[in-house]
Design a protein around this nucleic acid. Sequence first.
DNA 1: GATGCGCTTTAAATGC
DNA 2: GCATTTAAAGCGCATC
Lengths: 87, 87, 87, 87
Amino acid sequence: MSDDIAKAGDNLIAAERLRHIVARIERLEEEKKALGDDIKEVYAEAKGSGFDTKIIRQVIRLRKVEQADRQEQEALLDLYMQALGMA
Amino acid sequence: MSDDIAKAGDNLIAAERLRHIVARIERLEEEKKALGDDIKEVYAEAKGSGFDTKIIRQVIRLRKVEQADRQEQEALLDLYMQALGMA
Amino acid sequence: MSDDIAKAGDNLIAAERLRHIVARIERLEEEKKALGDDIKEVYAEAKGSGFDTKIIRQVIRLRKVEQADRQEQEALLDLYMQALGMA
Amino acid sequence: MSDDIAKAGDNLIAAERLRHIVARIERLEEEKKALGDDIKEVYAEAKGSGFDTKIIRQVIRLRKVEQADRQEQEALLDLYMQALGMA
DNA sequence: GATGCGCTTTAAATGC
DNA sequence: GCATTTAAAGCGCATC
């Protein structure tokens, strides 16, 4: 019997925690969406200034992969350094 | 001649503006990604506490469509009001 | 040598299957487009009868999200049932 | 007074027609969605057979514009024929 | 622990 | 030019 009471209490606590988790995620998603809107706005503004947003997107994509490449190269370098006992 | 100078100046200005636009977008995307990571972390934490993330995701999705529902109803009401010349 | 023959045969078969796939997709897309045209026609007809298509679109959108809502609720219930070992 | 009655009657009829229009559109959209699902299925099947769906999509897109080109050329030809009194 | 697969989200294209 | 529709990317999940 007291098991049931304990279980009911646990469920309440779990429900409360769930509520908290959901609230946190929703808050974060809201902020994330706001940033997405900001980005959209910048593109719209750029377009209004006569820029081709498609090309801007390409530029950004390109810079992203280049950055990834650089990081990869650095990671590889680190690995070599470690292998050579230089790090 | 002075046209060319003016054009060169414009290009410089355009390049500068482009640089600025790209920087702004990259900054915003960085923040956006950080929030995505935060969300992921909350899910991971919830999972670690024994919650079923699938249920949490479903709850959040449901709340989202309910909210959309409410907004759609209001939009529809507005339309009717306008159609009836009451807005 | 016979490997090459086999491979050539495979390529022929693959080409034939590809042709078949493309044909099927094109046929389906054609039908899909026809339906899209039908829908457009209904809207045009409604407009001709004095209806505001904007409102009709909104009504349909609303009914869609309400339906999605219902389905989400059922999905959530299922998840809960499963989580509670009742399904 | 009888104007009001007439108007109320009109509204009822309009509501009935609206219901009918919505039902027709929803039916058509349902069929359209079913075809979309069929197409997705064909792609999935193709993928299961080892084809690269991305390339298949390109093939289909290409064939579509080629077909459009052909139709355009034929239309142009018709025009010329008519202009020459040969059609 | 890695890989692949489907699904959700996000970007691009198109038509009104 | 904006909203809808369609293609692509990213992500979590399941499996091996």
